[in-house]
Amino acid sequence: MMPMRHFIFGTILLSLSVIPLALHAQTPVGADVCQEKINQELALEHRFFRSVIFGQKKAEDALVGEVRYDFFGNVWYKVDDDDWRSVGEGISPGDSRGDTAVDGASPIPPRKGLLETQRVSTSELVPFIGQSLRALQCRLDIICDAVRKSIQQTTDAPVNIIADSYACLEVSRQTIPECHLLKGATETQDQRTAVETYCEEIAQQLMHQEAAVMNMTVEYDASYRTMLQLAGNFDLFLQEFRSPIVNSIRQMVNLVGLFNRVPCFLSSCDGSPPPDTTK
């Protein structure tokens, strides 16, 4: 049985693979780089949200073949114990990172996911999942708010701002330098519109997608936990009853087999069949 988590991660990662996520250390400004930066920030939130739902293992517990992201968007692939490699920009293929470094460079800390919570029913997890979705929505909206506020900046350096969204906590953060479109006053209105609507559109799509995924996940998890609960109880039943009941039955069968051998009274044990008549 392919765990649902595999399916979801595979799907999402494949879909993300077509989104340009490259991070640029310097600050070229423009709609393209701004959109790319937006992608990076949204992807990070997406991974963060997923880690909340499904959890993220420590690097040392990860199996060969698992990947992790660092703060710069570089993807690290675990090739061996305590050995991670990346083909990120500026990273030599021969450069290796250990588990500790990978964890330290990851913007997402190792954590246990909500769905990894044991001994609870799915219903009990739904409020937390819903709250996480709500948090995702806030964080996406705040990113888009930051984008909007970044567009208006004219400086090279990032500016401290208060990003907010309706019904969400305000967040103090810096603007996104790649989106300081007013800096050179070369932007067109179209570019501004494209950047603003891009963020909102992508964020909305991401929300819809995650909501749908959560919907499916909850359904799956509920049925799965139910099945496991039944299986577990049945397993317990068999464990408990095997010895006193099944063993007794087996011993009885064995005993019945022995009865076949029990000598009876001499004449009735004769191999000869009894005579047809008594006379």
């Binding site: 765990p3 595979g10 494949l14 490259a22 293992k57 199996l63 698992e66 990947v67």
Partner: peptide
Amino acid sequence: NDITPSFEAQGTTKVIFDTYTSSS
């Protein structure tokens, strides 16, 4: 770098834990 995630292989999920009693 963007291709790398496609190489990811998730670990398997343990359904039955190795405990004395099977508390599935």
